[in-house]
């Protein structure tokens, strides 16, 4: 007989689960009664025979479970474990809440620490050739990363024979005209070839041209999560799915391992 046949039989038993149980019950009751009768015939008192038959038969619940395991699908035990877990959580709401909060805090804390370490130490700079970028500064004993004057920069750039391009930046701030008035925004002043040297281009509009090398000639605006709205459905669903999937995997694997332990064998080993 092939796998399809087995699967169909399992399915029919799954749908007729009540009937499967009652038939198994009746079959086992019959077995016990017959054993009891034989013991009485062999000269035992009815009461002693009853207990002897029960003893011989063993743990009926465990026995039924073993038969169930044969005909059941493996995911059924997972569903049972899940239902059991939910019931336990519902029974102790305070414990459930505390557990969920602690888990949330733990996951959140490790996630943020990892995000920082990842960005600062693990991930390379987000440019095409991060290994070929170097930082050049003026250096004094008192001020190791000292500022560079613009004239010195021009001289350095002219005399440079080592680097493909040599660009400069400095932090500053600007007033941004918005419909609700002028808002201060932090900004950087950069030389015209700055983005070209990093190997990136703006998502919209044009990069700086050499002719822009006049203060305030042109501006580029950066935006975090360019084009992502706060209620972007795609992003929200994707994030929710990833979190749910990792939670499922994280709970399924230990649950499965725990479920594979046969309690009678575990106790016997003690």
């Amino acid at each position: 007989m092939n796998a399809i046949h087995r699967c169909m039989m399992k399915l029919s038993i799954l749908l007729g689960r009540k009937r499967f149980r009652s038939e198994l019950d009746e079959e086992m009751a019959f077995h016990r009664d017959q054993a009891q009768k034989d013991l009485i015939a062999a000269g035992m008192t009815p009461e002693a025979a009853h207990y002897a038959a029960m003893r011989q038969f063993g743990n009926t619940t465990r026995l039924k479970e073993k038969s169930h395991e044969v005909v059941g699908f493996s995911f059924e035990t997972v569903l049972q474990d899940l239902r059991f877990a939910l019931r336990q959580l519902r029974k102790n709401p305070a414990f459930a809440l505390a557990a969920i909060l602690i888990l949330a805090l733990g996951i959140g804390a490790s996630l943020s620490i990892f995000a920082f370490v990842d960005a600062a130490l693990i991930k390379p700079l987000p440019y095409p050739n991060p290994t070929r970028l170097v930082d050049v500064t003026e250096s004094l004993a008192l001020f190791p990363r000292a500022n560079l004057s613009y004239q010195d920069y021009l001289d350095w750039k002219r005399m440079n024979t080592v680097l493909n391009s040599f660009e400069v930046y400095t932090g500053t701030g600007y007033g941004l005209a918005t419909p609700s008035g002028t808002e201060p925004v932090p900004g950087e002043r950069v030389s015209a070839g700055f983005f070209g040297a990093l190997g990136i281009a703006p998502m919209l509009g044009r990069d700086f041209q050499p002719a822009d090398t006049v203060v305030g000639a042109a501006m580029l605006m950066g935006k975090l999560l360019f084009g992502v709205q706060a209620w972007d459905a795609q992003t929200l669903i994707a994030v929710a799915l990833v979190l749910a999937a990792s939670a499922m995997v994280a709970s399924y694997i230990p649950a499965r391992r725990a479920a594979s332990v046969n309690p009678t064998e575990a106790l016997r080993a003690e």
């Binding site: 007989m1 039989m9 038939e23 086992m28 038969f57 063993g58 743990n59 026995l63 038969s67 044969v70």
Partner: peptide, 22 residues
Amino acid sequence: EEGSLYPALQRLLLQGWVKAEW
């Protein structure tokens, strides 16, 4: 042992090696 007999019978039924009727 009954604990092995009935699961074994279920297994044989599933494989189609035996048939059961009341």
